[in-house]
Amino acid sequence: MQLRELQSQFSAEILCGENTSIQTLVEQRGFQAKQRISVYRNNIFATLTETLSNIFPVSCAMVGEEFFNSMARIYIRSHTPDSGNLHDFGEHLPSFIESMPELSNYPYLSALAEIDWACHQAFHSVSATALDISSLGDFSPDNYEDLQFEFHPSIHTVKSKYPIFDIWDFATSNGHADTIPNIKSEGQQVLIHRSKSGVKVVNIEDELFQMIKSLREHKTLGATFTSTLDLNPEYNLKEGLNRLFSFGVVSTITVKRSIVHQ
């Protein structure tokens, strides 16, 4: 058998459990070919399952290891790794969870997994400088409307119709049963980012979520303020902006170059 054919069949045998002709090529020596191949299958599934439970520790704790591992086995087969770096494995787990009818008991699990993935990404992301609010002083107030922000590469936001921050907080703080969040209460938004002291998950109000979303789309500060006030005319923009800088997630501020029409 040619090497390429051998590798394709070996992979099918591992992932799909198919009885391929690879079995006829394995020296038995006291063991069945199947048993020898299953040593590899066990190693591979153990490595990939452990990778997922390491990257998604909070989701795993929420559903329990046994349930998580059986879910992982299905995920490994349906979303086989496509990178030689294990840290890239698991990107599609949140959407996979969303699509699994068996998980309807955990309607918030997909958002929880998204936060786990964002924490993992933030942990490994490139470092960047953090500006504080005084950096605005470098610009003339006449230009405030036209300012654009670049964010720390670790930043990620998650919005859920479930109280996702309370659920995260409960799952990560070994909370007591009497503090179990009521999943029927109002939806929440979280900001994930890495500061000097590590990866942080913070609860943010919907208006701030909207501000960050708009600024990350490179809308100007003026346009961002307008859309935020559309959401809630009472919102205190100055306080929101202060809070945003306090997280240390703004890394550059520039003035939008106005387009000259001819």
């Binding site: 090497l3 390429r4 590798q7 992979s11 992932l15 086989t80 030689g84 494995f89």
Partner: peptide, 17 residues
Amino acid sequence: SWSSIDGIYLHDLLPLP
């Protein structure tokens, strides 16, 4: 050893003939 085929990475040190 090898660990990938058809773009799928099995993340193990697999045997070669």
